[in-house]
Design a protein around this nucleic acid. Structure first.
Lengths: 188, 188
DNA sequence: ACTTGCATGTAAGTGGTTACATGATTGG
DNA sequence: CCAATCATGTAACCACTTACATGCAAGT
């Protein structure tokens, strides 16, 4: 899932500027399974333009800086569908949290508790975001991507079990941690 | 979760060679949430040695090439615990599969079905691996990491919902796809 | 004869991120 | 007055992957 294909996927649905694409990645409907920074989006877009997969036009706005709006071409649509037909790459799940959990017993119990609560909060925040997007989609269901609901529900369910796992089994991890006595002792 | 910390985490539990560390990442108990290649492990280990966080000894074997076994030092253990105390980085979930699902309606129904089955198979394979590791741990429960069970269950539950989501809602995605008639029509 | 597994390592390439440079406008 | 939002872009850097180089032994 390179940024190039990501841009094509967004432009497949609507025209957009680099700035808008970035926003969609961090806040939009697919925020929880893709991400990209300006430093990768802008070069990707100009490369796509060189290859004729998108075209651009500059739109002047008053009060705001002008923006460069990219539109996908027929060649771009074809290239995107071709990319989708390729075998699907492996999903990547890299979890600093699980690394922490695996070695929690080395740390003081109160730190473990703090980190676990932070993790729950993070999952809740993501779940809230998905709910918000779902609500928005219910409000104006005009000609939108038919599978967005499907993807959103998938994410919601995965995040929900993760959250539930965490809350119901928190205490076990905390209990594995060091008491403040043991930590003080180790420090001697 | 850089490879450096990954190496420290493994060496914290047992001494190992670069080759063995690689195997643990691809097959071992944490295979489903970390990964690393030789090209990153070997340089990381020699850098760790330069910094005095690990030491190494060469072990000659007959019939097999000699191996360089790395052992963590006290400084290494401290550095690792210090790293664990840092705020936990965000979990990364990059999903080419969800990108595919989101745009499945652009593709022929039979291709969608094929890809979905592949994805189920992949999830099943990962679940099998976890079960196998769990079984191994039940067989010889000698002084092993107390939180491995916790992490394994977490992964198992997350993968299981993903699998169940997929199997129960497969047909919706397939139905959104193009019939072979429509595809033939589009090709004209 | 060929592949697989064991074992170490390097060099080139990739696919990004972070930080910087720039600048106008709005809101607190 | 400062921060944030809108908006584009580049350059330096980073962490990692892929492919290559090497070699021996056991299994198929």
């Amino acid at each position: 899932m390179n940024v190039r294909t990501l841009c094509l996927s967004i432009l497949h649905e609507r025209e957009a500027s680099g700035y808008e694409i970035r926003k969609m990645c961090t806040e939009g409907e697919c925020a929880y399974f893709v991400e990209a920074s300006y430093g990768s989006i802008y070069p990707a877009l100009s490369r796509l333009e060189d290859e004729g997969l998108v075209t651009s036009r500059v739109e002047h706005q008053d009060g705001k800086p002008s923006k460069k709006i990219y539109v996908i071409t027929e060649a771009g649509r074809t290239a995107f569908v071709d990319a989708l037909c390729e075998p699907i790459g492996e999903d990547v799940f890299r979890s600093p949290f699980l690394m922490f959990a695996r070695f929690a017993h080395l740390l003081p119990a109160d730190l473990i508790e703090k980190r676990l609560k932070e993790q729950v909060a993070r999952l809740d925040a993501k779940l809230d975001e998905i709910s918000k997007i779902k609500a928005e989609m219910d409000e104006n269901p005009d000609g939108q991507n038919p599978n967005d609901q499907w993807v959103l529900r998938y994410g919601q369910n995965c995040l929900t079990v993760a959250r539930d796992e965490l809350t119901t089994h928190m205490l076990e991890l905390i209990a594995s941690g060091r008491t403040s006595d043991a930590v003080a002792h180790a420090a001697e």
